[in-house]
């Protein structure tokens, strides 16, 4: 085994150079041509950065569309799911509380109609999206708070609905931050 030691050490040094130094630099170089230059794509309002397109944000005020519950409170310094097992009684209590909170803030909505994604935490705690159904169910609340008519809001939701990839692959979704940025523009 000893005779392999020196070649192993030399080979290791060369491969560190190739795989850990040159390769990431090459990718960083390629990424400079990409949108956001490889630093993450940001969204701005009046020239001020208000967030990252792909990173969900916490919305608790009634005037905004809410995103999903988060195990890290939407602080993207970290990321995590709740990792609660499906039968955990403590977990089911949390879900019950989320249902209650949602009903209090959305008078007129029936419990049966709440999409499960609105009372379950996402995998990353940073999920930027909700489904179209989860947006539509919040329209009534927002229309009341903002004094807008529901039709305008439903149109906005429809405009922000991104269909499946290439029209046929995967789910439809809505980016909550982008939706709320446009929502703020309606009142101006």
């Amino acid at each position: 085994m000893k005779k392999y030691l020196l070649p192993s050490i030399k080979l290791t040094a060369l491969l560190i150079l190739l795989c850990a130094v040159l390769y990431p630099l090459l990718i960083a170089g390629i990424a400079r041509l990409a949108p956001g230059q490889g630093k993450g794509e940001t969204l701005t309002v009046n020239g001020k950065v208000v967030g990252y397109e792909n990173i969900g944000q916490k919305f608790t005020e009634d005037k905004y569309f809410w995103g999903r519950p988060s195990a890290v409170d939407y602080n993207a310094a970290g990321s995590a799911g709740s990792n609660k097992g499906p039968s955990n009684p403590e977990y089911l209590k949390t879900v019950q509380e989320r249902i209650d909170t949602f009903l209090v803030h959305n008078p007129g909505v029936h419990k049966e109609d709440i999409p499960s994604e609105m009372v379950t935490a996402s995998g990353s705690g940073l999920d930027p999206d909700i489904s179209p159904a989860a947006a539509v169910i919040q329209v009534k609340r927002i229309a009341n708070v903002r004094g807008l008519n529901e039709k305008t809001l439903l149109d906005l939701v429809a405009k922000h609905t991104e269909g499946p990839l290439a029209g046929i692959l995967g789910p439809s979704k809505i980016n909550v931050l982008k939706l709320n940025i446009d929502l703020d523009k309606l009142n101006k």
Partner: peptide
């Protein structure tokens, strides 16, 4: 708990 939509979305992301 009274939900009709019982999708197993805990720990999953909407875009997938």
């Amino acid at each position: 708990l009274g939900l009709h939509d019982v999708s197993a979305m805990e720990g999953k992301e909407v875009r997938f």
